[in-house]
């Protein structure tokens, strides 16, 4: 072997050993009493970029569940096509309980009507939700809109630019629901993600943004945005910000628009695996870390799974699916997939 090869190998070995010794501390022992205990690394495919809401929720849950399940959980970001390709590859993986997805209810529930993955139904997934974050109507602080009345007046008298994270994203659905319910119109300006949409409103390029409370919380705290109402039937409390009034105070029959974030695992996995995961999720979703994440990002910590989660998915599919179809964004009718009108 030439000297070069030797040096190369030695360098690689030394760095590998150094790295292992530093990180091996993170490995934990297996939980003894579980019926199904994972024997190798679990992978969570997050079909969105690193740092987004789905990603953060998945990471916090993963770090909690690693300890409970006694295995390591790897997170892979597979962004693109509104999360549908990543979600599909999680679905196409072997259904042995070792591949999960980290996504949001409204996204998974609309892949069919949007014709992204018409072959995979939201009913094929068992959802585990840990974070609920409602959409908040927020405006640039320099905007003449200061409260609900001036908001409605602005939408009635001029064309208001509303930023969103793209077609079918939270902010878009919220805007559609808001405008559709009140018979108003607006100028939809899509961005490449929730964060750019919020930043554009802070910068004054757009006037209104209706993205998730998670994405606007810090801008609200810093007075870079002004909250008008939360699209929910309860007021929203974000630490450091005045209580945001519920939209139903102003328009009684306005639907709630909010996203549940969490894990998605195909229903076809072995039942004992599902049981173990369910128990682990139950503990993880009530952990301090999840609670803290929710508190900081202006959202609500929840622990929804099983048939309760199926119900949330059904509601999301029916509400978002029909909204998107009626506004001409979605090509496939929800009827095609037996999704009833809300």
């Amino acid at each position: 072997m030439s000297r070069g090869v030797r040096v190369f190998l030695v360098v690689m070995l030394v760095s590998a050993v150094a790295v292992v010794s530093l990180f091996a501390a993170g490995a934990r022992e297996a939980a003894p009493d579980a019926e199904w205990s994972p024997s190798r690394t679990i992978t969570i495919i997050v079909p969105w970029g690193a740092g987004g809401a789905s990603d953060q929720t998945a990471r916090v849950l993963a770090s909690e569940m690693e300890g409970i399940l006694g295995t390591r959980i790897a997170i892979v970001n597979q962004p693109g096509a509104s999360g549908s390709t990543g979600q599909k590859s999680a679905f196409d993986a072997r259904k042995d309980g070792y591949t999960w997805a980290g996504n949001a209810d409204a996204s998974v529930a609309t892949y069919q009507v949007l014709d992204y993955t018409p072959e995979i139904s939201h009913r094929d997934w068992q959802a585990y939700f840990a974070i609920f974050t409602p959409c908040v109507i927020a405006v640039n602080p320099d905007s003449p809109i200061t409260d609900w009345d001036s908001l409605i007046e602005a939408f009635e008298t001029r064309s208001v630019d509303v930023a969103s994270a793209g077609i079918g994203a939270g902010g878009h659905i919220a805007a559609e629901a808001f405008a559709g319910n009140l018979g108003l119109s607006y100028n939809h300006i899509p961005y490449g993600g929730g964060n750019p949409a919020v930043v554009a409103t802070v910068a004054g390029e757009t006037e209104v943004v209706m993205q998730l409370s998670m994405e606007v919380a810090d801008m609200l705290r810093a007075d870079q945005l002004r909250a008008i109402a939360v699209l929910d039937n309860r007021p929203l409390q974000i630490s450091g910000v005045d209580e945001i009034p519920a939209v139903t105070d102003f328009a009684a029959d306005m639907p709630s628009v909010g996203f549940h974030f969490g894990l998605f695992i195909p229903k076809d996995i072995p039942p004992e695996a599902a049981q173990t995961i369910s128990a682990a999720f139950e503990t993880a979703s009530q952990s301090e870390a999840v609670r803290r994440l929710a508190e900081e990002r202006g959202s609500v910590a929840v622990s929804v799974q099983g048939s309760e989660a199926d119900q949330v998915m059904e509601q999301a599919a029916s509400m978002f699916g029909w909204l998107l179809y009626d506004s001409g964004v979605a090509d496939n009718s929800p009827e095609q997939f037996d999704i009833p009108r809300p």
Partner: peptide
Amino acid sequence: LLISTLSATIIWYSFDQVFLIP
């Protein structure tokens, strides 16, 4: 033989086992 098995094993070990890269 040595080079090929060693390099493949080292790559596999450091990626799959240490860094959890799929």
